[in-house]
Structure formats: C-alpha cells, structure tokens
Design a protein around this nucleic acid. Structure first.
Lengths: 196, 196
DNA sequence: ACCTGAACACCGTTCAAGT
DNA sequence: ACCTGAACACCGTTCAAGT
C-alpha cells in the first residue's frame, strides 16, 4: 500500500550498530515519530528526515513513493500504536469506572503520544485517508469511554452524551496545551460528569 | 507594526468598482479570511491570494514584508473580530446563565468563525506572536464563561473548574468537526454542567 | 537491493523598471 | 505611491549511475 520498495521482508535487529546496516521502513517511521514528538508537524521535512537518518534524499525515495506515502506509513504505525492502547483499555474493564476514565485520559495525554495525536489530527484535515484512520480510532475509544459511563450506572442516552463531552474535553485539552498537557483539571471534570 | 507600506491612510469605499481602485491592506486581509474560511490553512498560499485579488506577487510584497507579516495582519484583524464578540458577551449579562452559555458556544462555532479559529490555533503552535494573541483572547472568553457559572450560583472554585471544562469542550468540538460543528451535543453538555 | 548526486519544478522572496 | 516581470533560493521529486 503506502510503501514503494521492500515490503518489510527482513525485520532483523534494529539496534544501534556502527553504520553498516541498511535502512528499513520502520527506521524512517521511527525517525519521523521522534521528529513529530519533539518539534511538531512543521519539522517533518525531507531534509530534516534525511539529516536525522544520515542519508541522502534519493534513499528516501527508494523506500517511499513520496512524502504523502511516507505520512501514510506513519499513520499506519500510529494506528497500530492506538490498537495497543485499546488493548490496555479493555484490560481495564475490572477497574472502577472513575479510575478507568482517569487512566484513559492519562494515556491519551501522556508524554510522547499527545504530540503524535495532534499531528495526525492536523493531517486528517487535508488528507482523506488520515481522516478515516483518525475517525476509526476515535470511534473505538469513544466506545470504551461510553462503556465506563454505562458501568457507572447511567442510561445509554446519558452515557452517550457524557462520552461525547468527555471525548471533546480530551481533544480540547490536547489542543489547548502549549507544552505537555496537565491532567489535573480533567480529573475534576470527571467528578462532575460522574455525578448522578 | 506588521505592515510594510501604507498605514491604512485612506479607507474609502471598499465596494466592487470596475477595476480602477488600488488595493488596501484590508483588501488582502479580507481575501485571506475568505480563503481560510473556505479551504483552511493550506489554501493560504501566495499564488492563491494573488489570483484571488487579481494582481501579481510583487504587489503583495509592497503591502507586506513577507507572508509572516501578512499572517500577523490577519491575526490583528482576528483579534479585533474577537473583541466585538466579547462586546456581545458582556451585553448578554442580563440573560439567564444557561441561555448565555448557549449563545456563546453558538457564536464561537458559528459559520465563518470556526474555520478562522482553527487556523489561528494552528499558527499559534509555531508562532509566538500568534500564540500570545490566542492566549489573550482565550482568557477573556474564559472569564465570561466563568462569570456565567458564578451567576448560576456556583462557588468561585466550582465555577473555575466548569469554565475550564466548557472551554475545553468548545475547542474540542472545533477540532473534531469535519464540516460545520453541530451545537446539539454541546447543549446537552451544558445541562450537566449547570446541575448543582 | 539500496544508495548517491545532479537535474528539474514549484513557490516564496527580491528588485529594477514602469505608470 | 503602487504595481509588473524577471530573476533567485529553497525544497520536494526524478532518475541515471554507482556499489
């Protein structure tokens, strides 16, 4: 799909060897994630990427058909990352709803992820594929959030409204944060939303 | 400050005349707003702008020192726009808190404004001046929102938390919307937040 | 199979020259 | 004072040539 060259045939040891080993798609993806997490969307330029990976532009174009395809690869990796999050969420089903919601917010707004989240949502505005991936991921998380409210004893209708609000809050905090988001006010918000 | 050329000396009739009249800074700003509102940040390119205004690039560079300065001008105009909004908000102080909050959300998410809001917040991430303007505007609106909760009988602490949440919701909806935001779920959310 | 290096196209920017 | 048109720099993209 997005890749041009090798379909990830050999995924051997990706550790820091001297200089010998050749690049794989995931090396580029990893570099892109770091760049995004550290400096945001605008830092994701061909030159910056190649400099970081230590190779010339031509190499990039052997691995990817163009920057758009590269972003698609980033999206795919991000979606996979999101799936592991979801696994965490469903594994939480034994926790109290309140505790569960608090953890969800913390995962979403945590360290490295929130910058990626922002980047994805920014691309989603101009790219249909990105938009689809974000929507799909959102729906899954929304369900987990609603389930928490259902478990807290709300009717389906009440739970849905609260899930909408909680979700919007999360995204809102994501965008309002200049640096790393603080989850403190989000916690207080949950207290209100969980009141009957 | 941002402008290079004329400091808006003659603001005469800006209506559609044949082709004779010369351009003013606000003509460029108006064109930029329309472009942003219709197609978002990515459409704001030099070529698109010049095509829309019907003039060559050189003309642009007589009015503005560069694209950055032009965006500053857009920011200034946006801030002014925001001030008239705030005037609306303070004029609302006789309305019921619930009604007032509903109107505020509708103004923020209404037709032309929400796309501009998004654009400004996107720039604010990479530009310090933009960030300052957005922060200042946000603080004013936040106060108006908190005042509504105070008038609804909440303690200062309670009102502050609710203002935080309401504000985050607004921004969240802004970014979650693919097309024009629907204010329906926001209304239901207000019902919850106003409960004692 | 994977990468280099040079060439091209596009778009933001400059500037001498026009009215 | 305000605008044109040509030139330049930068960055994404292509591709023939290397190992």
């Amino acid at each position: 799909m997005p890749q041009a060259g090798p379909l990830q045939t050999r995924n051997v040891a990706a550790v820091a060897d001297g200089r010998t080993r050749r690049l794989t798609v995931s090396d580029w993806v990893e570099a892109g994630f770091t760049l995004l997490a550290e400096e945001g969307v605008k830092a994701l330029t061909l030159d910056r990427l190649c400099r970081r990976v230590g190779v010339t532009k031509g190499s990039f174009y052997w691995h990817f058909v163009d920057l758009g395809a590269y972003r698609s690869a980033l999206m795919d990796a991000w979606a996979a990352l999101h799936d592991t999050e979801r696994a965490q969420f469903t594994a939480m089903s034994d926790l109290e709803p309140r505790e569960r919601l608090g953890r969800m917010l913390q995962v979403l707004l945590g360290e490295r992820l929130w910058m990626l989240e922002r980047a994805m949502r920014e691309w989603a505005r101009s790219d249909a594929t990105a938009a689809a991936a974000v929507t799909a991921a959102d729906r899954r998380i929304w369900r987990a959030v609603r389930q928490a409210y259902l478990d807290a004893g709300f009717t389906p209708a009440e739970a849905a409204v609260r899930a909408d609000a909680t979700f919007a809050i999360g995204v809102g905090i994501l965008h309002l944060s200049a640096s790393v988001p603080n989850t403190e006010s989000a916690e207080k918000f949950l207290d209100i939303m969980l009141r009957h």
